[in-house]
Write a protein that binds this DNA or RNA. Sequence first.
DNA 1: AAATTTACTTGCATTTTGCAAGTACAAATA
DNA 2: TATTTGTACTTGCAAAATGCAAGTAAATTT
Lengths: 136, 136
Amino acid sequence: MIEIKKRSECPISCSLDIWGDKWSLLIIRDLMHAKQCTYGDFLKSEEKIATNILAARLQMLETNGVITKQDHPESKAKVLYKLTQKGIDLLPIMVEINLWADKYFTLPSERKEMIDEVKKDKEAFIKEKIKELSLS
Amino acid sequence: MIEIKKRSECPISCSLDIWGDKWSLLIIRDLMHAKQCTYGDFLKSEEKIATNILAARLQMLETNGVITKQDHPESKAKVLYKLTQKGIDLLPIMVEINLWADKYFTLPSERKEMIDEVKKDKEAFIKEKIKELSLS
DNA sequence: AAATTTACTTGCATTTTGCAAGTACAAATA
DNA sequence: TATTTGTACTTGCAAAATGCAAGTAAATTT
């Protein structure tokens, strides 16, 4: 089992205790891009997470209600991971991280396109994206 | 010295490579609350960071241009740490983390007050707070 | 029936974290 | 002026987390 030990009652600290490790937000990013992923999909991401770490993080995020597992409609060998509402609600944080990164790094052009869309109308982007993630 | 190895060119990943560890955002949080802190101030925070980890993180954040050191005006024994513009620009991310935490945790009342102010007018809050952090 | 895919687990080396103690310089106190 | 205290670290070592390679078990494909 996974221990959820809070370092303090501070909102930043409590949040980091759930997803403030090296990998969790990348898993969540994948789910925001793809809406649903199999275990293997996560392993394919370019940052190359180790399989045991992936398993541990998925467990942690599920225990904390950020993601859920469900059966794959076409195969019993596969599992689908999805964001819960709690996970979907991390979108504004992700958007702000993207904007910060856009200001201080040189990003690949395919990322820039999305960010330019955000910059045009942040609220609209978030609203639309949340809607997308919520149905399904 | 500190190694800045990027796992990928993804904005989320690049950002996490700088401040995506267990402690950095808590250091940044302290600086956002206090505007400037000494080494000892950070050690006093309720999460109780270990002194060697603190030294390592401060070094990392300074190397990456998120914070700066300056002489304490009243004592050569003390050092003042402050946010750079790059650090101040993390404020919107912090605000969103607070809002997420507000939705999913029960927070202490003194934190709630600040968050209620944010909820009234997020843009205004951020603008005002950035102004505050920028002068000095 | 055998090989392959999928989602993991296991074992072990490496790296990071945490704790306690130590150091060096500045400042306050006796 | 000598000694103690404060401040910002560093060092050494144990514990925990991470990373890598290989293994397992059930489902699917061949």
